[in-house]
């Protein structure tokens, strides 16, 4: 039986165009969101490319990508020595849930002070499978529409169940669930301190890269607000996101993913 685990969590804020001060870079937004300095920062290489700040939170990789039109706060599993060459998933979904809740609270406190037109919450969960048939079987069990499949090799199935927010009246929300069978290539690249031609890992042979193919059953929850008539304040953004997180938690149980802690 396939075990579902969290893979990625992401909060996206779509800032309004304003004549006031420009958006801060990703390093500042990272600090505002998580309270710490990022481990690494890359400024924009081009005005239309994002600035990027990366760090870690409770063993989960945290990153902020900032563009004038959108800001992404991402959380995803980090590769460890045990998962190197394989798909690293977030083993304790409760940690992801707690991080997302904390980020939503920070938005509610106006930590990032971004006047937004839209907000979005994305949670991606996966089950590692041994082949396409196992992946399709795992997906079909969680698609509550009585889908009958036989020898299909690829599957994408997406629905949108829009709703009106109870927390922020007048705001319409898209609530998208996407089931898919995904193929992953995990490319492990080793770089030694001596350069690309040196030994890759201490004591081992020196492969420049290794490629592993993996198949996974994938379910993505994407809940986002439709553009509104007036920019959303931090408290409103927070209410919409919290409502979305609650909907994802409830739905994942409803469709039988049963990820503990999410």
């Amino acid at each position: 039986m396939s075990e579902w685990k969290a893979f990625i969590g992401r909060i996206t804020v779509f800032p309004a165009l304003s004549a006031s001060a420009p958006l801060p870079p990703a390093s500042v937004l990272y600090r505002q969101m998580w309270g710490d300095d990022p481990d690494s920062y890359q400024k924009q290489a081009n005005p239309l490319l994002p600035s990027v700040a990366q760090g870690k939170r409770e063993g989960i990789a945290a990153s902020c990508f900032a563009l004038p039109t959108r800001i992404d706060f991402n959380l995803m599993a980090t590769a460890t020595e045990q998962t190197m060459g394989d798909l690293a998933l977030i083993e304790e979904a409760g940690k992801l849930n707690a991080e997302l809740t904390g980020m939503i609270a920070a938005i509610g406190r106006d930590a990032t002070s971004v006047s937004a037109l839209r907000v979005a919450l994305f949670v991606h969960v996966l089950a590692r499978t041994k082949g396409t048939q196992e992946a399709i079987n795992a997906l079909v069990k969680t698609i509550p529409y009585g889908l009958k499949l036989s020898n299909e090799e690829d599957l994408i199935f997406q629905v949108n169940r829009p709703y009106t927010s109870r927390q922020v009246p007048q705001v319409e929300m898209n609530s998208i669930i996407k089931w898919s069978m995904d193929r992953f290539q995990v490319v492990t690249i080793s770089i030694s301190g001596d350069g690309p031609t040196g030994p890759a890992l201490a004591g081992g042979p020196s492969p420049a890269s290794q490629i592993q193919d993996r198949i996974g059953a994938s379910v993505g929850f994407d809940i986002n607000s439709r553009p509104v008539q007036a920019p959303l304040a931090g408290g409103q953004q927070s209410s919409l996101l919290l409502e979305a997180l609650d909907a994802i938690s409830r739905t994942q149980r409803e469709i039988g993913l049963n990820i503990e802690g999410l």
């Binding site: 590769a79 190197m84 060459g85 798909l87 690293a88 690829d154 599957l155 994408i156 898919s180 069978m181 995904d182 193929r183 992953f184 290539q185 995990v186 490319v187 492990t188 690249i189 080793s190 770089i191 890992l201 994938s218």
Partner: peptide
């Protein structure tokens, strides 16, 4: 060491 994950849905 870095893992690059490349995903293809169909």
């Amino acid at each position: 060491v870095e893992n690059q994950i490349v995903r293809s849905t169909f």
